[in-house]
Design a protein around this nucleic acid. Structure first.
Length: 212
DNA sequence: CCACCGATGCGCT
DNA sequence: GCGCATCGGTGGA
């Protein structure tokens, strides 16, 4: 990396509206250290979720024990559990009056390849891609234990580094994945040059019951 | 390549 | 109890 790239973000830099934070995070590098080693992932796909005016946000119905981290300081990690076996990770942005966060959807592994291969021996292709939010947390080995950690603290098990910004003209925009409400709010952003972007799935009710 | 669908636990109504 | 900010395996084109 060159120039400023490589240093950790400061809290002030991350205290943004989630849509702005989403743009900032594209190209940055999240790094996680576990007992078996350290893995770094360059973020290429993110989604913005903005607090109380966004029906798709976990904040929408107010503060609960689960989403409490999003009411805390910016630059912390909000981790939630979904679909029985998966975790997803978010970076917390602004929080006063309007909690918001950015879901980390996909990235490219940039360090710790050997660790990744051990963690995901069944990964398709080269195993270098973290193509999906729960795959990303699995590769980084982030789960409930890391909920609330400070990404701007060098002593944290999970940290967020400045990377090379994705040029604005390379950023693509689209609807968020798997979201049933606010389908028309195009708050998914990705690096149009990356092969690691996850595949789009529409949200909404699954078929209730087969006809019979 | 794409589409479908089961597994799975918990937060919220 | 319902429904999810999901994944991976299977089966068809």
């Amino acid at each position: 990396m060159s120039g400023e790239a490589g240093r950790l973000f400061t809290r002030d830099e991350l205290a943004l509206d989630p849509v702005d934070l989403a743009h900032l995070l594209l190209g940055s590098v999240i790094e996680a250290t576990g007992p078996d080693g350290t893995v770094g992932v360059r973020l290429v796909e993110v989604e913005a979720y903005r607090g109380e005016d966004d029906p798709a946000s976990h904040c929408y119905r107010g503060r609960t024990p689960r989403n409490a981290v999003m009411w805390g300081p910016a630059g912390h990690l909000y981790v939630y559990f979904v679909y029985g076996m998966h975790f997803c990770a978010n970076v917390v942005g602004t929080h006063e009056d309007m909690p918001g966060a950015v879901l980390l959807r996909a990235g490219e592994v940039v360090s710790g390849f050997d660790v990744v291969r051990k963690r995901r021996p069944n990964a398709r292709g080269t195993g270098e891609l973290a193509k999906g939010p729960a795959i990303l947390t699995s590769v980084l080995r982030v789960d409930r234990a890391q909920n609330g950690v400070d990404l701007t603290d060098p002593a944290s098990p999970v940290r967020l580094h400045v990377g090379e910004r994705v040029p604005a003209e390379r950023i693509r925009v689209g609807p968020r994945v798997g979201v049933a409400t606010a389908i028309d709010t195009p708050w998914r952003f990705w690096d149009g040059a990356s092969p690691a972007v996850s595949t789009y799935r529409r949200g909404g009710k699954r078929r209730v019951r087969p006809a019979r």
